[in-house]
Write a protein that binds this DNA or RNA. Structure first.
Lengths: 211, 211
DNA sequence: GCTCGTATCTTGACATTGGTAAGATAGAAC
DNA sequence: GTTCTATCTTACCAATGTCAAGATACGAGC
């Protein structure tokens, strides 16, 4: 059976996701059109509605895949770290590199395109899993990942904030360089700065300005 | 002359900006429509085109105002710091608070809505001014704002990344709490962690993992 | 193998949107 | 007071998201 000529596509859902991915990659999510996605899949403009409730649902599915890919990238790179102490930094580098290499996908994942992410539980689950991967790396590197709840939470949040902020600034071209090697270098420098703070904070729990 | 009944509005540009601001605040930039903005200003749907080249230009103007407001908030709060050493932290708090209090405006400023910000020089100028305000606070707090160019750049970038990342995570509701006081508390904690890292980095320039 | 139910896909339509063109109006220059 | 020009309106276009109704084909039951 030839998928090109048959009335039924056979694997439209996957084809639509792939087409959406491609459009997002090449032209950005803002210029993504359901009808163009359908066109790319050689299908009528109403066909996608049999696989996704609406345009946002398609975007949510793409974002969900993105979170899965992000988590895998982070876990893979941190697992391959030369020394365990470097795993956390490697995770951060992977995070930033993912953003730089897939900027528009990253923006779909975190941007305002999907108004209410709470409407897509599986998307939320993948996002939470990605966050948990960061926390696990923290715990694995000797920093208090689960100990005193409050401070551990602040540490994890701060770690994620640095990575996330750097990633965002990089893809928004708010800082000049955007190529992968420059990004990796920046990520390492920034995390270096930050790690020292983490260990210092761990040793001296209260700096006095907030207590 | 009654602005309500006259053929010529008299101050349409400002009215359009205000209406756009309001729509962004209440319903988000994604749901902003040029026609609805025109409707809010009691004007035909084609009138805005005499004041803004297109929808993106209106968004850019809103974003420009946002950057100006952000910079003023940062400067005001850091200038009112109890001790000079706290000015930088206060700047960070102001930054995060601004994002939390104007989340959708913040997203317009940094998000992908405006495809090519390079098309709006005045917008870029305001964004650069906001960045410079951060660097000035860094310099004013004894950290090397202008010394050895590379390391100073990394410090400024890292500082901005922490603030920006925290702000983004907060407004994306990726972290639970979003009210102002909780945000302020989180910002102080995170910056506390980070400051220790900064001073440590300043004292021990190379941690070894990147060199 | 044949019928039939159902998921999948298409055609057609509708309201809305961003954007342009041509005409109407009013304030400003002289 | 006439004329010029910026401002605003009406009319229109192509494209989009979404829905409804009809066409097609795969799979269950006989």
């Amino acid at each position: 059976m030839d998928q090109e000529t048959s009335y039924h596509h056979g694997d439209l859902r996957r084809a639509l996701l792939a087409a959406a991915h491609e459009t997002i990659r090449t032209r950005g999510a803002a210029r993504l059109t359901l009808r163009e996605v359908a066109r790319a899949a050689k299908v009528s403009h109403a066909a996608p509605y049999h696989h996704f409730k609406n345009k946002d649902a398609l975007l949510a599915a793409v974002a969900e895949q993105g979170f899965r890919a992000l988590r895998q990238a982070v876990e893979a790179r941190s697992a391959a770290a030369a020394r365990p102490a470097l795993a956390l930094q490697e995770a951060a580098v992977a995070y930033v590199l993912f953003a730089v290499e897939h900027p528009d996908l990253f923006r779909v994942m975190f941007g305002p395109q999907l108004a209410d992410k709470s409407a897509y539980p599986s998307l939320q689950a993948e996002a939470a899993a990605a966050y948990q991967a960061v926390e696990e790396q923290l715990a694995r590197c000797g920093l208090p990942g689960e100990g005193s709840s409050d401070r551990a939470g602040h540490l994890a949040l701060a770690s994620w904030a640095v990575m996330h902020g750097l990633a965002m600034l990089l893809i928004d071209r708010q800082v000049g360089e955007v190529n992968a090697t420059a990004a990796e270098d920046l990520a390492k420098h920034v995390t270096d700065i930050f790690w020292l703070g983490l260990s210092g904070y761990h040793a001296a729990p209260d700096s006095g300005s907030t207590g």
